[in-house]
């Protein structure tokens, strides 16, 4: 059931654990069950690609994993703590501390320099100006954009914008990076660059990466691939990098 990557540090408890998670939207005749009982364990340090046709429940699962949404039923353990009972603000604080988000549409603040975009999570954390600046610059340096710190999103290419978004997600040193189709708006060359960056971060900084994608080429970078279908986990594959896939 649980997908434990071969070279990930083996810990007794998975970082993330979903049990019997359901999600229902609407009521009565318009009721729609997006998740019908998802069980999923994710080990710390894993690189997970989530795949599946639209409507399969992968986005809903990602929203729940990202603490943006709560399950209708079932349990969600993060580092052994129950998340499904947390209120809105508690989840926000959890996101602030442990999670980083990368979106398909980059979602940078317009008319705002790369540096200020990257600084944003630190502002909410209440860091001092000096510390914010240093951490943001370091983060931009990690994604190779230190020289572009004063450019606004409009002055950056799509690939660069996504790298700024990754820098923003990294700046708080999160445990988990949630990427929702991070390469969906990029050409294949840029996509590969972004995937290489995510792979490097996963390996060097031991950040757990959860990525939604519908492109098998991108999923090939992951160590674990979770396939969704009709609101359930259909199957989980462990694979060696670049397509050396092994059925679990």
């Amino acid at each position: 059931m649980g997908a434990v990557a071969s070279n990930a540090p083996l810990i007794a408890e998975p970082l993330i654990s979903l049990r019997g998670v359901t999600k229902t939207y609407g009521q009565g005749a318009t009721m729609f069950q997006a998740l019908k009982g998802v069980d999923l364990d994710i080990a710390a340090g894993d690189f997970v690609a989530v795949m599946g046709p639209s409507g399969s429940g992968k986005s809903t699962t990602m929203n729940i994993l990202g603490c943006l949404d709560v399950p209708s039923d079932g349990t969600f353990l993060f580092r052994g703590h129950h998340v499904e009972t947390l209120d809105r603000d508690q989840r926000a604080l959890l996101r602030r501390k442990y999670l980083g988000f990368v979106f398909q549409g980059f979602n940078l603040l317009s008319r705002t320099s790369a540096l200020e975009n990257v600084e944003l999570p630190l502002l909410y954390r209440g860091d001092e100006k000096r510390a914010r600046r240093d951490a943001a610059m370091a983060s931009l340096d990690t994604v190779g954009l230190a020289d572009w710190w004063d450019h606004t999103p409009a002055e950056l290419s799509g690939g660069q914008q996504q790298r700024v978004a990754i820098a923003r997600a990294l700046v708080t040193s999160p445990d988990v990076l949630l990427a929702d189709e991070p390469t969906g708006n990029l050409d294949s060359e840029r996509s590969v660059e972004i995937m290489q960056l995510l792979t490097r971060l996963n390996a060097e900084k031991n950040i757990t990466v959860l990525m939604v994608t519908h492109e098998p080429d991108m999923a090939a970078f992951a160590r674990t691939v979770v396939h969704f279908k009709d609101g359930l986990v259909e199957r989980i594959e462990s694979q060696h990098r670049q397509g050396e896939s092994v059925e679990s």
Binding site: R88, L93, L94, N107, L120, P121, Y124
Partner: peptide, 9 residues
């Protein structure tokens, strides 16, 4: 974006 990166209401 602000909410996602952890701003409370």
């Amino acid at each position: 974006i602000r909410l996602a990166i952890g701003a409370v209401a």
